[in-house]
Structure formats: structure tokens, C-alpha cells
Computed example of a mutant assay.
Amino acid sequence: MPRRLERPATRTQFVALFLLQLSNFRWSWRGMLITGMIAPLLTVASLGAFAEDPANLSYVLCGSIVLSLMFQNQNNVAGNFAYMKAMGTLDFFATLPIHRSLVVVATVLAFFLLSVPSLIVTTVLGVVILGVGVHLSWWAILVVPLCVLPLAGIGAFVGVQARTPEAAGATSILLTFLLLFFGPVIVPPDRLPDWSLALGHVSPTTYASSAVRQVVVGPVTGRLWLDLGVLVLVTAVTLWGVGHRMPWHQR
């Protein structure tokens, strides 16, 4: 009877998986350049031309930041999980002495790290193009990761549920645009119909955009606690769902 491999320390497992997922930069950097920087900046330039009021401009800026996070994390994570599922990589991981949950966490955090350059470029150039006054709060250190995690969790869930990488990509793109226009994410609430505002209450991007506006433009209010609470809840639910739905056929 073959001897079962001894499971390495959790830290060793995570570092190995994290570095492995960082290697995805070799194939994804072109897409990151286009969707992570160019698409949000075009959104800034086009919508900013019609939003002259400072309050409206802050929605355009912060909504574009959320858009960058969605393209870079939700879409890339969805594609990565769908690819690993189609190529049998998840089945291979299941034969190794590693925790299934660490595959999810390492993938999400690796793509978050890869998205940081696009996030910085989008923010800096967005401020320059729109001329929005920035009052950056130290809360941004907590808010940005908490905005990324639920979006990446949604992407991971789409990836493990999709039959093919192509289906995962199409579904994730569709969700990106739906979540972007449900609620006051990139468009102020007084410009949206009632049905869109109502749907915004169940969209994580509404709370992500609100949190980003408070820590980037200011001021930080008590609403931030609600935003962070919802983002944590969505993160927990999506990552739990991914862990239970992810194919893991141990042999």
C-alpha cells in the first residue's frame, strides 16, 4: 500500500501556491494592461466629460477604481479557476498534501498583488484627468483588500461553476457590467432609476464604491462600518461556496 505523503506546514503550502499563481503574470500581463488600466481610464475620460460637478466626478473616479479591481481580480480569478478545472490542475492539486482552502486564498491574493500597479495608475491618472481633490485616509489600507476579496470570490465561484474557460470569461464580463451599473457605483444616485438603486442594495460593488469614496475623497463616516461589514459577509459566503463547489477528487 503506497505511503501517504506527509502534509507540509500551512505556511509552506501557502507560499508555494502563492508563488505558483504569481507566475500567471507571464500570460496575463497583456490583459491586465488593457482591462486593468486602459478600460478604467477610458471610462474616466468619457464620463468625466459629462460630470462637471465635483460630487459627480468623485463617483466617476471611485467607480473607475472599482472597475479596475473587478477586471483585474474578478475576471482574472474566474478565468484562472476555469482553466485549472478544464486542464485537470485542480485534480492534480487534490493528489498533493495541501489544503483545498489554501488554493483559493493563494489564488485570490496573488491576483490582488498583480492588480496593484493598475490600481495605482488608475487612481493617479484619474485624479489628474478629473481634477478631483483627494483626502486619502489610512483606512484605505483595510478598505482596498476588503473591496477585492468579495469580487475575487465571485470570480472564483464563476470559474469553478463554468463548464469551459470561455463560458467563465463571458459570465464574468457580464457580471462586471451588471454589478457596475446596479446602484450608485460610477453614476451618482440622483441620475439612476429607482429599480437600479433598489438592486444596488444587494450588490457588493455599491458598498465597495462607497467605501472607496470615503477613504479616497472623504469624509470617512459611520457608513464605512456598514460597507465593510457587507464586504466581509460577501467574502465569507463566496469563499465558502468556492471551497465547497471546487472539484477536489482525491486519489
Rank of each mutant, 00 (worst) to 15 (best):
R100E: 02
D194K: 14
I34K: 07
L175Q: 11
T164M: 13
M1P: 09
N76S: 15
L228W: 06
A82V: 13
P188I: 02
T206P: 01
V60Q: 01
H201P: 01
L239V: 12
M32E: 09
S23Q: 13
I34R: 05
A78E: 04
L42S: 10
C62H: 04
G155H: 12
F182M: 14
L20K: 11
R30H: 02
L197Y: 06
L151H: 05
T235D: 01
G183E: 02
W225Y: 12
V66H: 00
G126K: 11
F181P: 03
H244D: 00
L179D: 02
V105T: 14
A208E: 10
E52D: 10
T176M: 13
G169R: 06
S203T: 12
T123G: 09
L33A: 15
T171S: 05
Q21R: 15
G63A: 02
P193N: 03
F81T: 06
P145N: 04
S118R: 10
D53R: 02
G88P: 03
G133H: 09
S46W: 06
L114P: 03
V143Q: 00
I98A: 00
S203V: 15
A152I: 07
A110E: 06
I173G: 03
R100W: 00
L228T: 04
A162R: 10
N75Y: 07
V108K: 01
P8L: 09
D91M: 06
P8Q: 08
C147R: 06
C62W: 05
P145F: 09
F25C: 07
